[in-house]
Design a protein around this nucleic acid. Structure first.
Lengths: 225, 225
DNA sequence: TCAAAAGTGTTAAGTTTACACCCATGA
DNA sequence: TCATGGGTGTAAACTTAACACTTTTGA
């Protein structure tokens, strides 16, 4: 043991995941109705402890996989939360991450086993610990990022209509947008490509389906919505 | 010991400080030329270990105080850095913070004792560990924040000239700005107040000294530079 | 007297916003 | 046939960008 380090304390380092999903014009978070201690019965984020073999990024990916069955998900760090009394029983420092997933593609069985539910972000229950703070910060960072980087597409199916895209951005920003102005901006981004497929679910007339071409985006990475 | 926690590993949790200063049109970082192990002789950020009695925010403030003698400094978290091998000898998870200080007001004796030096951000030496990554992320966050919140004033003396303010923003953004357009924008922010004092150092003619009125800012918190 | 930084307005270009109607279709 | 969401262009308001000369004074 190296004496430079050894007189310093060590801490449990947790990760907590703010998992965003989008459906029918609403943003949702995947939350646990805890069927385990501590604070059994309360609502919380999905979390877990960082292991020796992992970075916190790895741990967050593992925890997300454990709950949703999903890999290669868009995740970004929200920050470290370290108030002394942030958990009641033990000192735990937690690093929060947010994830953007396609709400149609997670593993329903795993979610059920964990007693997790999709909850509308605007109707959140009281969250345990400092999880509300984490959610607030995650939303702020995600909103900021979504306005300048094409991360929103992670919340949509591969094929989406412009109305879906618009209502996604409306719920991220919490404000309505003008349809014509929105489509004008989309039209300028060549990497948002119209396909020849038609969505027949959302309307009688049918709406053109679009896709995000990430390779084309990288050639000319300008984004603003 | 609670068994829910006890089978998980614990970690040293460090903090590292990216300390910005501004002088004569240049941005500087306060860096250690390490006169202690590990990696004695290398350049690094000032850091320290989080203690049981502290949040990481507290630890960062303590570490900054230890090096500069300054309290009540503007600090913001940059994020957690947790790669398994980010330090060579021991597993340490570090939370980085940046600080904006008035470069005229730190405790020179303390800085000397720590073998710390102000280094131009555009001429940084090779930094140890992942400290360059921390600096890069800190600069990005700081730049973003400085464009929408009046945090830049923390880098200036209480009284400053508009030329100083402009050259500060030029070095933060890494681009030149138009003097008349800049002053027009400043003129619209009523909380950037002209005083009746004149700075005679920077020019023969003398330049009006301004101050940031934080109370006035809070009344109408719009900022954009 | 001249070098060096301070100070000061106007115009053109570009961007953003506001706004309303026709289309296609399934029920 | 009608209710529903899909799709389309223009003009005014506003914001941003470009630009050059006069002032003051210490050396």
């Amino acid at each position: 043991m190296n004496s430079y380090y050894s007189h310093n304390p060590k801490f449990y380092v947790a990760v907590d995941c703010i998992i965003f999903g989008f459906k029918e014009g609403e943003l949702f978070l995947l939350l646990l109705k805890r069927n385990f201690e501590p604070c059994k019965g309360g609502w919380s984020l999905m979390g877990g402890f960082t292991q020796e073999s992992e970075s916190t990024d790895d741990a967050a990916k593992r925890v997300l996989l454990e709950l949703t069955g999903l890999e290669k998900v868009y995740m970004e760090q929200v920050g470290a939360f370290s108030a002394i009394d942030r958990e009641p029983n033990e000192r735990v420092i937690s690093v929060a991450y947010y994830a953007l997933i396609n709400i149609d593609e997670y593993d329903r069985k795993l979610v059920q086993e964990h007693n997790a539910y999709w909850v509308n972000v605007n109707e959140l229950p009281l969250l345990l610990f400092d999880h509300q703070q984490m959610v607030d910060k995650a939303r702020k960072i995600m909103q900021q990022k979504a306005s300048t980087k094409p991360i929103g597409f992670n919340l949509l199916p591969k094929l989406f209509t412009l109305s879906q895209l618009q209502s996604l951005y409306e719920v991220i920003y919490g404000e309505e947008m003008d349809k014509r102005n929105f489509r004008k901006r989309v039209a300028e981004m060549d990497y948002i490509e119209k396909t020849d497929k038609i969505d027949k679910y959302s309307s009688k007339r049918g709406a053109a389906l679009y896709q995000f071409n990430s390779k084309a985006y990288r050639k000319d990475p300008k984004f603003k919505l």
